[in-house]
Write a protein that binds this DNA or RNA. Structure first.
Ligand SMILES: [Mn+2]
Ligand SMILES: [Mn+2]
Ligand SMILES: [Zn+2]
Ligand SMILES: [Zn+2]
Lengths: 133, 133
DNA sequence: GTCGAGAACGATAACCATTATCAATAATAA
DNA sequence: TTATTATTGATAATGGTTATCGTTCTCGAC
């Protein structure tokens, strides 16, 4: 149903060729660097259209919305408060329990978002180095 | 450490006397209706200060940040896509599993947010009524 | 009690992510 | 070809939040 215009194809390619969690602004810069200068409004519209078509998926992270490939299976995210890095995980127990909770509340679940915040392994190592004088 | 000024006390009271998940604007209107006309900047600053002091807790819901009492135990939220209502739940299995995942990834978790989206029981009932002509 | 430093306040400007507007262009259908 | 419709890009507008700044409040030192 979605029309894959040159601009939308460029956006989709950029996202599919990486494992990043892109926001609109970052994507605009990357596309510009790659030779595609696409208006920022077109990028926002393209992202919305591609998400609705199921070709990419999104997460809400604090203030901004971030997009990633949709060809990987569902997963949730560990977000580092120090460096901003995002790790992915999947836990079937958690997924199951969510369905269980929803059914308990007679709630027709159609999605969820689980963010775990903290400090990633890398940042922990760095902070340990820094502490010992 | 936090100084509970008249304005901050009014904000805190309003939140503590209810079970709502308040955003800044809603709170400003409610306070104004209750006779406290507090500048919107002061409300934002007050909410930030009260949260840092642990007197209220916050969740990020899409675009806006919402605040609720902190005297209730930790819980997560079921958010209705149709009416916007928020139900609360707690599931120890999910909490446990999160800790497990974090430790697997050597990730020092210091918080999390789980939002389950869908249609609440009420809205389901209403939509069924609407469907049968 | 007076003084002064620092905290808090309120009005408002600024910020930033996102969406709306609109004229120009491209694609599609008749 | 011509009419219709969708898409684009520049830019204005929106909405939530934060920054600025002059004024007011608080409170301990004197
Ligand atoms: Mn991901
Ligand atoms: Mn709650
Ligand atoms: Zn990190
Ligand atoms: Zn509902």
């Amino acid at each position: 149903m979605i029309k894959l215009t040159a601009q939308r194809q460029a956006i989709l390619d950029m996202i599919n060729q990486s494992n990043q969690h892109w926001d609109a602004e970052l994507l605009a810069r990357a596309l510009s660097d790659a030779g595609h200068s696409i208006g920022i409004a077109t990028i926002y519209r393209g992202l919305t259209a591609l998400e609705k078509a199921g070709l990419i998926q999104a997460i809400h992270l604090g203030d901004k919305k971030r997009y990633e490939r949709s060809d990987k299976a569902h997963h949730d995210h560990l977000v580092c408060r120090s460096c901003g890095s995002i790790e992915e995980f999947f836990d079937e127990h958690i997924e199951q329990r969510q369905r269980h909770v929803a059914s308990q509340y007679r709630f027709q679940m159609d999605g969820h978002q689980l963010l775990i915040f903290g400090i990633c392994q890398q940042c922990l190592k760095l902070s340990m180095k820094g502490e010992q004088s």
